[in-house]
């Protein structure tokens, strides 16, 4: 269960205060696949960074499994990110000099999985997202965009997070690959019972999710 109440975020800038989010209220059930759509500058990324504990809100609460994460210390934020959150980025953001397998193992390391179990678990996760054994040992630049995004989904799933936050997960992919990635996320939300919140431009994709929130000028309008 993800419950956002009266969430606001104001940035101090040289030209005065800029309000990025204003009284945002969202409620998503566990295992639901939700999407947020909105123009650039509408506050999508800011909302995502609040939910992912990358930043702290100016006011309001974010309850994840009945725990307020909006007022965590930066140390506890890190722990929360490691164990409760999985990120999927538009740019994939895999570590360039680590193999696909090592990238997933890195997330397992941060999640506190013992060194002996990491490799087997990472192989299992990559297998689940459809990465073949010989591809697991490749560096990201030797994988296609779709494969890289699969690896990053495996990385996001590594520690059985409560929420997967996806920032334009199909934004850099052709429509066919994008659809496959979307289907993968969709099936995972079902099989793993993981809440998925995806930010997207793609109305096709948004239309297929369980719920869609529309963000405009920092406010939810639907």
């Amino acid at each position: 269960m993800l419950e956002v109440k009266n969430l606001s975020k104001t940035f101090n800038s040289p030209g005065g205060n800029v309000t990025a989010l204003k009284d945002v209220n969202i409620s998503i059930k566990t295992g639901e696949f939700a999407s947020i759509i909105g123009n650039s500058g509408s506050g999508k990324s800011t909302l995502l960074s609040m939910l992912g504990a990358l930043d702290t809100p100016t006011s309001g609460t974010i309850m994840v499994d009945d725990k307020d994460i909006s007022k965590l210390s930066s140390k506890k934020q890190t722990v929360y990110r490691a164990k409760k959150i999985g990120f999927v980025f538009q740019q994939y953001n895999l570590i360039p000099n680590l193999s696909a397998l090592e990238n997933v193992m890195l997330a397992l390391e941060f999640g506190g999985v013992s060194a002996r179990k990491r490799k087997g678990k990472a192989e299992q996760l990559l297998n689940e997202v459809g990465i073949k054994p010989d591809e697991m040992l490749r560096k990201p630049y030797k994988l296609s965009g779709g494969q890289q995004q699969r690896v990053s989904i495996a990385r996001a799933l590594a520690n059985h997070p409560s929420i997967i936050l996806a920032d334009e997960p199909t934004g850099n992919l052709d429509s066919e690959t994008g659809k496959k990635i979307f289907d993968l996320l969709h099936s995972l939300s079902r099989s793993e019972n993981t809440t998925i919140l995806a930010v997207t431009h793609d109305m096709d994709i948004a239309g297929k999710t369980d719920r869609t929130f529309k963000l405009k000028d920092g406010k939810i309008i639907t």
């Binding site: 490691a82 164990k83 360039p96």
Partner: peptide
Amino acid sequence: RREIGVIKAIGGTNKK
């Protein structure tokens, strides 16, 4: 910078 940001985002501590 970005890579450091990613490591932190997926749960890597400052210390690590």
